[in-house]
Write a protein that binds this DNA or RNA. Structure first.
Lengths: 341, 341
DNA sequence: TTGAAAGCGCTAACAC
DNA sequence: GTGTTAGCGCTTTCAA
């Protein structure tokens, strides 16, 4: 069913139909009713493509995620979807799979008429490569970009982040607060900006506390070597408080500690990043830095839609609040003393 | 940059440019080169919307998921994305959030020119309501639909499922095989077709084993009452083998058992549905029915693309193999005897 | 080998 | 109040 066919059936012109359906003041009430009735009858829905082509807008927002098998990004996506949906936007989701190549392709395809704007967390490979031309091109073509979590300072655009350095600082202070003396950090994401920031926050807290930082207690590793190296760390240095910078690290530490008969939190207190559902159901339940992915997503979507509709001037970087979810992995018995090493 | 502008700059006609870019045999090599060079220079990319409007195809597949905060659907989405990406299709993802209303809106919006076909798992509310007209309309408009997991027999289309009844049967047999005598089932998804099938499979196995089924040992509950009712179940009936039909049920059982000091697997063996990462990291690690979401997604996408490109005749229902991932929650010590009740 | 023109489905400025 | 027409960016038939 098209406007044309409708017009033919009604014996009126195409534009009359179009205007009637769009409730134009130019059309008489009786005609409007006649038109609407027939449209209803044939379940007419305007072809979005044509509307978009005509208007130059698509009411569609592109979302490029590095991974979908990752609780954090899924949660952000949920937030994005919530807000876009409320505002009558659609989202078109692409997965870069941490690949530069795919990110570029996705950005190019999307920006060629399909989307009004883009929400993106930069792929791992791109962050290493430091090549952001595709985003610049997208912006130049008139499609605003909002970056979240994995951002770069090389592109001027709106950004939504958490204060990773400060969060890590607070998390580490949390460990100090429960009487941890020998603090370690484990990271399986040191190639990411956010990973590096978290290390910095950790170092800051440790520096403040003990006057110096022992590099031996900072473990940066690949996923493949993660468990083995955590094992070495626990064996050789036996920290009594660990900050895990990503979910895999958190899980590996719990696993290895269990294998080695080390008790969490009494022998080792643990605070880490992880999906909330996962954290709650581990035993011991994991104290986490809750990144509030839903808020990040909602915020990113709101900012983009605002810019799309009101064309705000000047770019903003929004910092989303995080909080520490206190669970068993840092719940030391009161007055407890750390096991002698 | 448009064909028009390119044509102007080159002093040739629009159609020449279009043909040159599409490598038409009608155009001379020198002209092609000239055109391509300029296109390259201005980084020309054809407007997708216009191409789509013209061709009537969009190379975009709509995906409607009931939820994104659900490991299973995310995993399926991953599989879909993988295949669509390999075949140069885009996906546009919508979340119905288990709402009939939203599912209808999403389907309508998508089917109005934006997509070539649709992959969908039916929302909870829709399954209860049994109103599937929107899918029928979508198909009638020429957009094939592939359903997965949450399907209905009322719509003729391709389907991708697992054999829930049989899986549940096998899972229950697994419990029987490790010497469980008093079998219970917990479901927080009894409003879903898949949930009901799993109950049937359980009943079949129990019936075979003991000649009758005790309804008291089949717990169908809402999420809100889940923990409380699991508690009652364990207190009143003390089953020694439980089949959990969804992740929430699995987690609740572990939690309550822990609270009550019941040992898994020695006091109660547990087999359930859950995300693999979650299952691995629980303690005890959870034996699961692995639904192989990635395969489901891949299969659904392949079937849809096939139909789109080759227009296959007759609808198929593909059954994806599942397997039981044996973990600690059913790993009873050999020769162990069930604790007296 | 190249170009003019129609048309995908829609909207809107401008006539009537 | 209604209709004519141009045009969004592209492809493609047909004519030159």
């Amino acid at each position: 069913m098209t406007v044309k066919e409708l017009a033919k059936k009604l014996g009126v012109s195409i534009s009359t139909v179009s205007k009637a359906l769009n409730d134009s003041y130019e059309i008489s009430e009786p005609t409007k009713i006649r038109v609407r009735k027939l449209a209803e009858k044939y379940n007419y829905k305007p072809n979005r493509l044509a509307v978009n082509l005509k208007s130059g807008k698509t009411r569609t927002i592109g979302v490029i995620l590095p991974s979908i098998l990752n609780n954090f990004f899924t949660t952000v996506l949920y937030g994005i979807e919530k807000v876009t949906n409320e505002n009558n936007y659609n989202i078109i989701t692409c997965i870069s799979n941490e690949s530069f190549e795919k990110e570029v392709t996705n950005t190019e395809i999307l920006s060629n008429g399909i989307i009004d704007g883009l929400i993106v967390a930069i792929a791992e490979e791109t962050q290493i490569k430091k090549d952001f031309d595709h985003f610049q091109a997208c912006i130049k073509e008139g499609h605003p970009v909002v970056m979240f979590d994995r951002i770069t300072n090389e592109i001027e655009c709106d950004k939504v982040v958490v204060d990773d350095l400060n969060d890590a600082y607070i998390a580490t202070r949390h460990l100090i607060g429960i009487n941890c003396k020998k603090l370690a950090l484990v990271s399986a994401i040191d190639f990411l900006g956010v990973g590096q920031l978290r290390v910095k926050g950790f170092e800051k807290a440790v520096e403040e506390y003990s006057g110096s930082v022992d590099d031996e207690l900072i473990l940066r590793t690949s996923l493949e070597e993660l468990e083995a190296r955590v094992n070495t760390l626990l064996t050789r240095h036996r920290p009594d408080g660990i900050f895990a910078v990503d979910e895999d690290a958190s899980l590996a530490i719990q696993k290895v500690a269990k294998m080695k008969g080390l008790h969490i939190p009494d022998d080792i207190a643990l605070i880490g990043y992880a999906g909330e559902k996962m954290a709650e159901n581990l035993s011991p339940a994991l104290t986490t830095v809750n990144q509030n992915g839903v808020s990040i997503g909602k915020s990113a979507a709101r900012i983009l839609i605002d810019r799309l509709e009101r064309g705000s001037e000047g770019f903003v970087t929004t910092v989303i609040n995080t909080n520490i979810e206190n669970r068993e992995s840092t719940a030391r018995k009161k007055g407890m003393r750390v096991k002698k090493i």
